[in-house]
Write a protein that binds this DNA or RNA. Structure first.
Length: 206
DNA sequence: AGATTGATCCAT
DNA sequence: TGGATCAATCTG
């Protein structure tokens, strides 16, 4: 008998952000697009925790961009970074406490998609999914497929690209499966264009 | 209105 | 190490 999908709920995400982040390692991210599903095991995430966390976008206040972080848990926060890449987050905790988990890396059919920009390219995630509800199993959601981490499998590290955040940059709020380190090196030497890898369309010149 | 910036990636 | 590339944000 076919086992039922366990889609992660609003209740799941409405918890302390670091706990959600740690717990998301080993869960699956599922993207439904073009009549099919692409899914990958989450192997790296980062927690961004509230208005005082200088690395969290919401630390600069509630703006057009960060407004979604102040909303309910389980909603997508997708933004454009460096003019060319997208980053996927899922909002956590109670409303008015702006926080989220950044999804940094997944494994699709054993292939490591390492980096938030590459991940969004592979799953065709862009700002059209900003504010999407990730708890309804519509176009993007999270699933528990029963993966249980062994002792010592979860590594904690400083977050990437947030040196400007002073003491907050030292928080060990990046979590990664230790076992992916080796395959990360292998994958990096691979030429690009592998399965599930969406090429950027050619630039349009007038 | 103009200037600056960035939770990245890739080539050198 | 530096360039790509642009929306949001900041500054005057």
């Amino acid at each position: 008998m076919k086992s039922k999908r366990k889609i992660l709920s609003r209740t799941y995400f409405n918890r302390p952000t670091v706990a959600v982040a740690r717990s998301l390692i080993g869960k699956y991210l599922v993207r439904a697009i073009d009549g099919r599903e692409i899914s990958g095991k989450i192997v790296e995430v980062e927690a961004y925790v509230g208005p005082k966390d200088k690395a969290c976008h919401a630390s600069k206040g509630r703006t057009q961009r960060t407004d979604v972080l102040f909303g309910q848990a389980g909603i997508a926060y997708v933004y454009l970074i460096y003019g060319m890449y997208h980053c996927l987050n899922v909002v956590t905790e109670q409303e008015e406490f702006p926080s989220a988990v950044l999804i940094r890396a997944i494994e699709i059919d054993g292939e490591l998609i390492d980096g938030p920009g590459r991940l969004c390219r592979a799953l065709k995630i862009d700002r059209g999914l900003n504010r999407a509800d990730l708890t309804e199993g519509e176009s993007l959601w999270f699933e528990d497929r029963g993966v249980v981490l062994k002792r010592g499998e979860l590594g904690s590290h400083a977050r990437i690209g947030v040196d400007y955040a002073g003491a907050w940059a030292k928080k060990l709020w990046r979590f990664r499966l230790r076992s992916v380190s080796a395959s990360a090196r292998a994958s990096r030497t691979k030429k690009q264009g592998g399965a599930g890898f969406i090429q950027r369309p050619p630039a349009i010149s007038d």
